[in-house]
Simulated assay, not measured.
Amino acid sequence: MTDKVKNFRESEWVDTARTVTYAVVIALIIRAFLFQPFNIPSGSMIPTLLIGDYLFVSKFSYGYSKHSFPFSLPIFDGRVLASQPERGDVIVFKKPTDNQTDFIKRLIGLPGDEIQVRRGILHINGKPVKRERLEDFIEKAPSGDLRRYPQYRETLPNGVSYTTLDTDANGYLDNTGVYKVPEGHYFMMGDNRDNSNDSRVPSEVGYVPFENLVGRAEVIFFSTDGSARIWEIWNWFSATRWNRLFHEVD
């Protein structure tokens, strides 16, 4: 092998390594500062988000904290370039009880609010939130049977409207005490009200500090019903929920 050929191949390796390094750095910057992908592993946000949804979360919506970075690196305390979230936002946050686990819920209570659930009806500062009965939500079980759940449209005081499920009219989280949201914290609830560990359960989640917010859920970029394993390429098409692709999270 001549020196000319050898030098050419070494140059190729250097160029390839440089390209890969640039790509990794750009991906890390996008993930830390702009958008991060998440998938939904549980049903706590049904019907808004389904198990198998993949979504982009905007990292810049509320500014940045240590939880904006991989492994929650303790680069600084608090938030920089901070913007306040709005009631009704669907938010990814680090669970306060371990500061590691990513949770996704809807922001219901702002600092200073009093939150309570009475007979399944959400109350904010002593006033019931408007709730309208809709057609049942229908879910196909793995056995093929269809399951039906009572579905409602809930409208918050600021006009944000979304759908919720209330599978048990007298569930253990359908009647709560009054939660007084501390300053600098938020009250989160899942849309699947009887199947969500959220701020109503202090031992699991409780009030969420502003610092723990990771970002706001924006759009579903992919969704699968789980019927196809990763190697079953021939089943990918039928397993994809095409009607959910590029669906905005509201």
Rank of each mutant, 00 (worst) to 15 (best):
S61T: 15
L55W: 11
I108G: 07
T97H: 06
F76S: 05
D77M: 03
R87H: 14
I115M: 07
D77S: 15
I75H: 06
P47I: 11
P74M: 09
S58N: 12
I104R: 01
G78Q: 03
M45Q: 08
G78C: 00
I46D: 08
G52W: 04
P74L: 02
I51L: 02
L50W: 09
V92H: 01
L50N: 11
L73N: 02
F71W: 14
D98N: 14
G109A: 14
I46K: 14
G112I: 05
D98F: 03
M45W: 06
V90Y: 13
D89C: 11
P96K: 05
Y64D: 03
Y62H: 12
R106W: 10
D77I: 00
I51E: 15
V80W: 09
S61C: 13
G109I: 10
P70F: 13
K94M: 10
I115F: 08
P96L: 06
K94D: 03
F60K: 10
R79A: 04
G52T: 00
R118V: 15
Y54D: 08
E114D: 11
P85N: 06
D113H: 12
D102K: 08
T97P: 04
G43H: 06
G52R: 00
D77K: 15
M45V: 04
Y62K: 10
L107V: 15
P70I: 11
L81G: 03
L49N: 08
P96C: 08
Q84W: 01
P85D: 13
